Amino acid sequence: MSQADTFTADLLEISASGYAALAAERLLAAHPQVAARFGADAVGAWKSALAQRIVELATALRLGEPELFRARVNWARRAFGAREVPESDLRASLEALAAVLAEELPAPARPGAAALLADALAVLDTPAESGDQLIDPATPQGRLALAYLAAVLEGDSRKGTELVLDAVNAGMPVRQAYLEVLVPAQREIGRLWHAGELGIVEEHVVTYTTERLMTLLAHRAERAAPNGKTVVCAAVAGNAHDIAVRVLADFFDIAGWRAVHLGASVPAAEMAAAVQYFDADLVVVSAALSVQLPKVADTIAALRRIEDRPVRIMVGGLAFSDAPGLWQKLGADGYATDAEAAVARGNELVSG
């Protein structure tokens, strides 16, 4: 990351709304068919979407990770396809944004932004990714996940809960119920929301039911003997989703740790205070979106400033999936892709 990229990232974040408004106006003026597709709300919708692209662009520049912006453009590409919006609209919006930034940014700030936007536009010249199948209906666990979702989405949370509890009572390990039923089901809900196939109300119902079910399952799990170690698990500030963090906390608890679940969107200072209050040996910080990664860096910096309680720091979450080596750049001690890997890595970090 160069000084020029840092300067550009700062400028983009500060002026995101203004640049987005200019790009939206340019887009709709040059492409009346786009304006017609979005109707009366076209300006507001595109201003919001382009402001998000600008913040994502700034994050990739700040962290020196172009892949983060490519991944977000691919995410938008899939969302456009799911909502049957022509991909040409996405291309046109990025071209409008590139033109505005080329005109409005100071000369030293232009090259970095232009390079990432050109790279993103090149992504659109490649075949679209098909996406991974989140639930496999050919497996018993996949069929259970689908049955669970169907019951909850039909308004029968009790039936969905009983389906999973019956499977556990019949011998399915709690870890398997988490990793092969509930986690895939929750990801499928995210996919359906992303595709515009369900709304926020349905997502909330499933998430609430899953959280309640996890509490019941955690009490049924066979626990290892206490190991005398404490882990604090939290979603970074700005990350409002804490299902993954709850899974982490439960898996550490099952493995014999004292697990403290702080929940969603925890500010850096509060996380550092919790480490001291609970005498934590390990902190696990989760981020779902790339734009939350600077907050992860802030949190790690706050944790490193604790003098009387040195603590090991591990990171995880979907935000890291597009740049697996980023955890080292941010200053963490480790990274894990899922809850089981997090427990194994946590044991290594604390015992090492």
Rank of each mutant, 00 (worst) to 15 (best):
I135D: 05
V123I: 15
A58S: 11
A122W: 01
P137V: 09
A115E: 10
R78T: 09
D119C: 07
R83G: 00
A114R: 11
Q133Y: 08
D132P: 13
L101Q: 07
R62I: 09
Q133G: 13
L101K: 05
A98M: 07
A151Q: 15
Y148C: 11
S93N: 01
A128Y: 07
E103D: 06
E129T: 14
P127V: 11
P127N: 08
Y148D: 12
A96I: 08
Q141F: 02
A147T: 13
E103Y: 01
P111K: 10
A96N: 02
L124R: 06
L134C: 07
A147S: 15
E87H: 08
P106W: 05
E95L: 11
P66M: 09
A107M: 04
A128R: 10
V100Q: 08
A118N: 09
L124D: 05
L117V: 13
L68F: 06
T126P: 02
T59C: 10
F69E: 05
R72V: 13
A138Y: 03
L116Q: 05
I135R: 06
L61T: 03
E65P: 07
F80I: 12
A92T: 07
A79Y: 00
R110F: 08
S130Q: 06
A79R: 14
R72T: 07
A71R: 09
E65Y: 02
